Simulated scan of single mutants.
Amino acid sequence: MKVAYVIGGLPFGGVESWLLDLARHVSKTSDFECRVFNVSGTGVKMPEYISSGVDVVCAGNSLDSIATHRIDTVLRLRSQLVEYAPDIIHTLHFSGDYCGRLASIGLGVPVVTHLRNIKCERKLRRRLANKLLSFFTDMYLSVSRAVADMVADDHNIAKRPSRVIYNAVDPQKLAVEPHDLTAMYGVSGRIVVGVGRYVGQKNFDLLLRALRLVLDEGHDISVVLVGEGGERPHLERLIRELSLEGHAVLTGYRQDVPRFLRASYALAMPSDFEGLPITHLEAMFCGLPAIVSRHVPSLEIAREASLVCKRSPESIAQCIIRLLEDEKLHSTLSNTGSRIASEHTMDLYIKTLKGIYDELASRGKEI
């Protein structure tokens, strides 16, 4: 079986990391083969894909390539799909969903559209495109029940089959030694790690303000934010304003996130919205309790391994202090998280995914 993964681009993010883990894993098995179609042809993770031996084809060569009016990109992608002759087309990102489904019309190949975030599109033309393209979708996959609810409301007017398949961790990827973060960055005390793009949605500014409150209570603790993004200047300014030098670090984009998780005491994710963050699963596998907002849908499977905070510095700080002052609580959450994560491994995930592909291939294209 051949699967074409159509994705808008390969920047730093959870979707791109999931696809890389999946493609690496598939290359070592005989479950199916795959090729990644990068619609824009861009992304900081492209070299990782190439160095990992993942088969990647680019339909475009810039972010302009994925504008909704760029029918030339759709036609180029269609030609590439015809050449590859996949049994399944699996789309990701708005641009991958949009271009992939348009390019699939008339090919007779079942299309899986995979939604990974509860955020609704703000642009009317995008929302209309999502609804209309549901008629060229054979199955929706969602990473959580919360995402599935959004799909039902904002996408699936054609009433196509819809399934929830939770994200998974790759144990081999996480079998690493921890970084010495004190030697690398000069931080001290327990480490609370945040992982993701530096964007407003992640509320890393609230985490830094919470750090100031915890330090003022006399605890020795540091926050390490692993990622990159447009909010960096704001976060750097906040570190200076709150006198957090030596206790707060912005690492920039890193390929070795598991080594940061292994070196940390807890994960913080006070986000405004998510889908089902792979980082949360990976942190649990590494034995880290998580402090998350109620808007993080991984609570569907990880509530017993997490503390739920409000999106305020005071609430985040209270959760951090609870973990610091109650080692038994930390241990209980850690052990529970490790158990939960062990039930969501890439091996089990691929078996479920392959079953879905087999079902669609045997059933054939809807229209």
Rank of each mutant, 00 (worst) to 15 (best):
R145D: 11
R145C: 03
R145N: 13
R145S: 10
R145V: 04
A146W: 01
A146I: 00
A146L: 03
A146D: 08
A146N: 01
V147G: 00
V147D: 09
V147H: 00
V147W: 09
V147E: 06
V147N: 07
A148I: 02
A148W: 03
A148R: 05
A148V: 07
D149C: 01
D149P: 02
D149G: 07
D149R: 09
M150N: 12
M150C: 04
M150D: 05
M150V: 15
M150F: 05
M150Q: 06
M150G: 08
V151C: 14
V151S: 02
V151D: 04
V151W: 04
V151M: 10
V151Q: 03
A152F: 02
A152L: 06
A152I: 11
A152H: 11
D153K: 13
D153P: 00
D153I: 03
D153G: 09
D153L: 01
D154N: 06
D154F: 07
D154Q: 11
D154L: 01
D154Y: 02
D154E: 08
D154W: 02
H155L: 04
H155A: 08
H155Y: 14
H155I: 05
N156Q: 09
N156C: 05
N156E: 03
N156S: 03
N156R: 10
N156G: 09
I157Q: 09
I157N: 13
I157R: 03
I157A: 06
I157E: 00
I157Y: 13
A158M: 11
A158K: 03
K159Q: 04
K159C: 06
K159Y: 00
K159A: 00
R160H: 00
R160N: 09
R160D: 10
R160Q: 13
R160C: 01
R160S: 07
P161I: 13
P161K: 09
P161M: 09
P161R: 13
P161N: 05
P161Y: 11
P161D: 09
S162D: 04
S162G: 06
S162Q: 15
S162E: 02
S162Y: 01
S162C: 14
R163W: 07
R163A: 05
R163C: 03
R163I: 05
V164S: 00
V164D: 02
V164I: 05
V164M: 00
V164L: 09
V164H: 08
I165N: 02
I165Q: 11
I165S: 02
I165R: 08
I165Y: 01
I165K: 10
Y166N: 14
Y166W: 14
Y166Q: 13
N167D: 06
N167T: 15
N167R: 08
A168I: 15
A168M: 10
A168W: 14
A168S: 15
A168E: 11
A168D: 14
V169L: 13
V169W: 15
V169Y: 11
V169N: 09
D170M: 12
D170A: 11
D170S: 12
D170H: 08
P171S: 01
P171G: 03
P171C: 05
P171R: 10
Q172A: 13
Q172M: 06
Q172G: 07
Q172N: 14
Q172C: 01
Q172D: 15
K173F: 05
K173R: 15
K173V: 03
K173I: 08
K173S: 06
L174N: 06
L174D: 10
L174S: 12
L174C: 04
A175I: 14
A175L: 15
A175R: 13
V176H: 03
V176Y: 07
V176N: 09
V176P: 08
V176W: 14
V176E: 01
